[in-house]
Design a protein around this nucleic acid. Sequence first.
DNA 1: AAAACGGGGGC
DNA 2: GCCCCAGTTTT
Length: 221
Amino acid sequence: MTRKRILDIDRFVATIESNYRQWDPPIITFIANRGATPFEVLVSTLLSLRTKDEVTGVAARRLLRAARTPETMVALTPQEIERLIYPVGFYPTKARRLLAISRLLLDRYGGKVPDTLEELTALPGVGRKTANLVLVEGFKIPAICVDTHVHRISNRIGYVKTKNADKTELALRKKLPRRHWVRYNELLVAFGQVLCRPVSPFCSRCPVADMCPQIGVDRHR
DNA sequence: AAAACGGGGGC
DNA sequence: GCCCCAGTTTT
């Protein structure tokens, strides 16, 4: 007779929260702990496309030191941007997108980043994930940003069971208490970067291992 | 040499 | 939903 195990999401979030400050994940350290502006969140996310989090963090710092507003961004040439963001890869695409979005923000929004999902996803190169991240980290508006970490870990701990990120977002919208929405993303990204990695997670050092049904299933350390 | 890193957009 | 995209690092 098998009993359905229910994840105690409050205890899960609280446990991650109490361990959070011991970790030093590059993206979250840069975006969340530093109180980044919406534009900085947007730029960091555009750099992160198919790029490891550590690399993105270093490149984002360097680029944003040179240009932390749309005004200063459009003053850079594509070549200057490409040099600043090395080695994230995909330079022409990323430089073009950064410039296009910066110009568009200046033309349409007076240099401000809009704060609705509809306006954000209308920007070229901005989809649901990026838009939700700007909302929740840039504006601190309750939103659920399902990036690869949130998707992987939400499923790994058995809180949701979905194949794709959009489904996970819908499921979390229904299940996850609203009081966790703002914190959930950054906690899970930090957790996912440092311990609950895609392959070979460090289960032996995991503070929520007792709540995880995947212990002993994945190859873990 | 192959896999991992991730998300947007077009159809 | 499925496919395309295309550079660097890790295994």
